[in-house]
Structure formats: structure tokens, C-alpha cells
Design a protein around this nucleic acid. Structure first.
Lengths: 114, 114
DNA sequence: TCCGGCACGCAACCCAATTGCATCTGGGGC
DNA sequence: GCCCCAGATGCAATTGGGTTGCGTGCCGGA
């Protein structure tokens, strides 16, 4: 499953992952969720919430992606990494707030959906 | 409903809005959704997807918030505007992609949840 | 061989959001 | 004043992603 994530050029939904695995072996939807949660808790992957209220998962390719920008297509939901965009590593937050990480999301329409 | 949004210091879920209105008049959940969609389509409000897979709504106080940063508490879901944080107005995207707007989200734990 | 833990699958459930449809209401035309 | 239509509203049912509970099978160690 991690291999699938690493090979993907974009964030994958649980459904896409399930489908990608299906050719090799049949796994239950729940198992996919559980393994993904496990990968996330291990820091090998992270998940982002899309506009369509589904989780998408990305492998953390080393720590180059520690601060990552995403492009989210508001039509098809496709989510890709924008490697060239720098994300401010730290921001000013109100007193008492504890930021853990910063996300920079660009919404719009992807090339395939225009 | 717009008044409720304008008065709020944070992004409101449909549920919170429904509750805020309940004291004055009883409205159906569906009506709340429809009015909110209408406000969004008019540009008077915008909605953001939280980590908990629920929509949250914010009034657009003029256009000062055209590029807005948010703080999202990963524990309670509370979403507040970070007015002091500047968002890059434009970013570089792959060929063929059409960005419409940029969101800067800071994830972490809010003061109330620590 | 027996036992305990663990991963897995199945089914049921939860909940936000959406849709379909019937009803109400208010204004314009006659 | 009356009728009709359009838009707004409410109710109920549905959708769909995600989660949970529970039973079962598969090891590995004692």
C-alpha cells in the first residue's frame, strides 16, 4: 500500500487505493482504512481533507514535503503536490494556540477538467 | 443568517448556525444549507472544509479577506481567521491548471483545547 | 497441543450532506 | 377579489464516506 502511495503522482482516496490493490489482492475497505491510519500514525503518510469531504492520502517522500503546497481541483477533486511553491514554515497565531503544521492549498480547476 | 455569520468570531458549522437561529425562529436544516449555498454563490460568504468533514461558513467582511489564513483546531474543529498572516496572492501551478484562490491553513490545537 | 494476541473481513451503524416531492405563501395579472 | 404561478420552505428518504463491533482465522510461543 505504501508502494502504491509512493508511486502515485497525486493524493489518493481510499477508493483509488483499494482499486489499485484489487488487481493484486482483494482487501477489505476497512483494512485499507486501518493500514492507512497506521501509516499516518507512523509518519509515513499524511492525509488531507478535500472539498468533497473525503480523505486523500500522500506518502511523505522524505521530509522535503514537510511544508507542502497542494493544488485541489474543485471539479474532480484531484489533489497534486506543488513542489515549487514554498510554504511559510511558521506563522503568527493568537496567544495560547499551538500550531503543528501549515498547509497551503490552491483551489481551482485542473488541466483535465477544463 | 448573514448577521449571525458576521457576528461570529469563527467559522460556523451548519449546526451552530441552526442553533443560533433557533432562539429567534425555527428553520429546517435543509433551509439553512440552501441559504448558505445562496450566500456563498453571491460571494457574501465562503465555506471551508474542515478536518472533521463538515462545512464551515464565514462571512466575507469586505474584500480584506480575499486571501485569508485560517487556524483549525485538530481537536475541536474550531476554525478562526488569522488576520495577521499574509497569503501569497498568486502561486506557480503546472501548465493548464487554473487557480481560483489560495488558502493558507494552520493546523494545531487551539487555546481552549490545550 | 493449547493458548493468546493480532490482523482481517463482514455487517451494521453514524452522521453530514443532498435530493425529491409536497405544501405554503405572496405577488402579478385579470 | 380571485386565480395562478414561481419561489421558498419543510419533511422524509437517500447517499456515501467513514467508523465501530464482533466473530474468525492465522500464527508464534509456551
Amino acid at each position: 500500500m505504501l508502494q502504491t502511495l509512493l508511486a502515485a503522482r497525486q493524493a489518493l482516496t481510499h477508493h483509488e487505493i483499494e482499486q489499485a490493490l484489487a488487481s493484486r489482492l482483494a482487501v477489505d475497505r476497512v483494512t485499507v482504512y486501518r493500514v492507512l491510519d497506521w501509516l499516518v500514525s507512523l509518519g509515513l503518510a499524511h492525509r488531507i481533507a478535500g472539498e468533497d469531504r473525503t480523505w486523500r492520502f500522500l506518502a511523505t517522500h522524505g521530509e522535503a514535503h514537510a511544508t507542502h503546497a497542494h493544488f485541489m481541483c474543485s471539479r474532480c477533486g484531484r489533489t497534486v503536490c506543488l513542489d515549487e511553491v514554498a510554504v511559510p514554515p511558521a506563522v503568527k497565531v493568537p496567544r495560547g494556540f499551538e500550531p503543528s503544521h501549515v498547509e497551503l492549498n490552491v483551489k481551482g480547476v485542473c488541466a483535465a477538467c477544463r
